[in-house]
């Protein structure tokens, strides 16, 4: 925790340095958040203000019309919009859970065990990160067709479990944060390898899997189903919303509302996770004193 860390530092930090850092962060924060604030402002503008000249940043007469229009359009959808929402949540939760579980299991062995084939797996994971995903779509499709998974949630969820980014990330953190001596003493006390993984390693690397949850969640939340989900009642929410805003200029206000609504869920998950990261660090910092 920073309070402990700052207190433990045995040297003075220059005030000028602090001021400069503060200015850089403040300026950058404004630049980074500007387009997001803009997106939110757009969503609350009446249609005529969206096309005003010269363009205005903030809405002059804020309105909820865009949102009520959107809900009206959603209500007309012949597959209930809640079904799309369920599809999205199901895919996101199952996909993320499997990704974290299988990824961290594998990462634990890669970081803390030594066995024939380990280097090969490590290298394959590293290299696969650098192969352009979009040429893999066809082989991927063929695999799905062979497995008879086209038009099922599995076509999206199961490949998400094989996402390599997570393993690589978890392996780095386990390698770096979990000390061998800790595992050794647990083994002497009779802990099984699974205990070492589940009860010792996972709590220590909580920041890593919280980060992985954010990444995986975000990836799958944007999922539109593409060529793998044909049936309308299996399509995820972003697909349904993109259909609604496909209606041209007249739907500009609704489109702005959609942008905001699609952002709310990942941002909420992000905030919960980041506060968790801060909290874990707080406790483990004290425990380490």
């Amino acid at each position: 925790m920073s309070r402990f860390r700052l207190a433990s530092k045995g040297y003075a930090r220059s005030t000028a340095g602090d001021v400069i850092i503060f200015l850089i962060l403040g300026g950058a924060a404004i630049f980074m958040s500007l387009p997001l604030v803009y997106a939110i402002c757009q969503a609350f503008k009446p249609l005529n203000e969206l096309f005003i000249f010269p363009p205005q940043f903030f809405p002059r007469h804020p309105t909820l019309d865009n949102f009520s229009d959107l809900f009206l359009l959603m209500a007309q959808s012949w597959v209930p919009i809640t079904r799309y929402l369920f599809n999205s949540l199901f895919i996101v939760i199952m996909g993320t859970a499997g990704n974290v579980l299988f990824g961290s299991l594998c990462a634990y062995a890669l970081a803390k065990h030594n066995f024939p084939g380990k280097r090969l797996i490590n290298n394959l994971i590293l290299f696969s990160l650098m192969f352009a995903g979009s040429v893999l779509v066809i082989p991927h499709y063929l695999t799905m067709a062979y497995l008879n998974w086209i038009n099922s949630y599995a076509a999206i969820i199961v490949p998400a479990w094989a996402a390599t980014l997570g393993v690589y990330l978890m392996r780095n953190f386990i390698d770096h944060m979990v000390h061998e001596s800790l595992l050794e003493s647990a083994r002497i006390d009779g802990a099984s390898e699974f205990d070492c993984y589940w009860r010792i390693t996972m709590p220590i690397v909580k920041p890593a899997w919280l980060t992985l949850i954010i990444l995986s969640f975000q990836n799958l939340w944007g999922e539109q189903g593409g060529m793998f989900l044909y049936a309308e009642e299996l399509k995820p929410l972003p697909y349904a919303l993109s259909q609604i805003i496909g209606g041209g200029v007249g739907r500009a206000g609704v489109a702005a509302a959609v942008t905001v609504i699609l952002m709310i869920v990942p941002i909420t998950v992000f905030i919960i996770n980041q506060t968790q990261i801060v909290q874990t660090m707080g406790t483990s910092g004290i425990a380490g004193e």
Partner: peptide
């Protein structure tokens, strides 16, 4: 001797082979 390790990496490696390695080789 290391069969426990393979139990740990097994599930991921199987998925990874089917959905990542083989498509890359095909490509």
């Amino acid at each position: 001797e290391n069969k426990v390790s393979y139990l740990f990496v097994g599930p991921f490696v199987i998925l990874f082979t089917i959905f990542v390695v083989i498509p890359i080789l095909i490509s």
